[in-house]
Design a binder for these strands. Sequence first.
DNA 1: CGAAAATTATACCGCACGGTACATTAGCCC
DNA 2: GGGCTAATGTACCGTGCGGTATAATTTTCG
Lengths: 184, 184
Amino acid sequence: MISAARLFARQGARGTSIDEILGEAQAGKSQFYHYFSDKDELIRDVHNMQIERMLALHSVIYEQLDSWEGYRLLCDTVLHLLESQRFQNGCPIGSLANELAAADELVRMDTEQYFDRKKAAVVRGLTAMKLRGELRADTDVQGLADFVVICLQGAKLVSKVRRGADAASVALEHMLKHLQSHCV
Amino acid sequence: MISAARLFARQGARGTSIDEILGEAQAGKSQFYHYFSDKDELIRDVHNMQIERMLALHSVIYEQLDSWEGYRLLCDTVLHLLESQRFQNGCPIGSLANELAAADELVRMDTEQYFDRKKAAVVRGLTAMKLRGELRADTDVQGLADFVVICLQGAKLVSKVRRGADAASVALEHMLKHLQSHCV
DNA sequence: CGAAAATTATACCGCACGGTACATTAGCCC
DNA sequence: GGGCTAATGTACCGTGCGGTATAATTTTCG
């Protein structure tokens, strides 16, 4: 399954055959159909695994989103993750969602929930700052959280196409600046 | 070819068979292989057509990016385009790039150029405003242009997953606000 | 008209893919 | 050990796919 995840991130789900996965995982077909009913189920399971994996990986950061250092850390972490794969993969969740959102409603909904949870983390952080009086009282926390999610997702897509972090990192810098413009 | 474009936008390139395209286009296989050497060539041609089509469709708006009304018009147009397809397609160029950037270097490079041209339009507009003294002299025009491209791309992806424009439109509103924060 | 060239229809090929059948092994409980 | 179930190996099947061959049709133009 982790082989599948890696291949899906690189080539997409439809661009990866079951045999290819099994080849890399050194497994036979019988094992596959013992654990999964069909390819769609594998895809959904892999996708959910990636979602949980990503949320877990960033959980520590998500708890720091009540400070600008937290947001900077978030951006840096995202960029480093992209760089560690030489900008060839982009966002595994976003990529798979983009590929299959129209074809597989379950994938679409799971991805929507992923965005919701990511957004919720930002909302928590910004709300805490607001309550502490660090942000102006009229700050649109919900809207800013959507803004952050969209910027991150866009940055990951563009860095994949550009095979580099330059545009993404400077854009995220502007995202940060906009957040900070809501300081009292 | 316009049938192919429509199907690719809905189901992705790999999720669309040649026969399916020919069925909708009411054409035979011989015609296809008369005009294209293989499926990859069709994909690239469709992709380039979409790029030119999109740039042409927005060319009037791109000339107005030296005013905030221009940027608002850009956001509104993008959102309306998404809505007109009931948020099922997202960005045809971004989606195809996301699907094939890793597999087809030509698609990747064409998409990169598309981003470049989009960015250039923003750079032109902002530079004009800067020269007119409407923007602060230290405004990072290049960075802001990357920022705009990334926000738009992210907004299109998220609206596709969310099947709605709410998050996207509020995020683009914040993008606008950030741009305007560079006023003198 | 009539030959040459471009265009279209249709039947077909090879194959890689998703999925199945069935035999074999390994673990487990009594 | 012996019987039972879960796990694995492997050979195979049907089909939908990308792509080809070839013939029929239309168009072009002298």
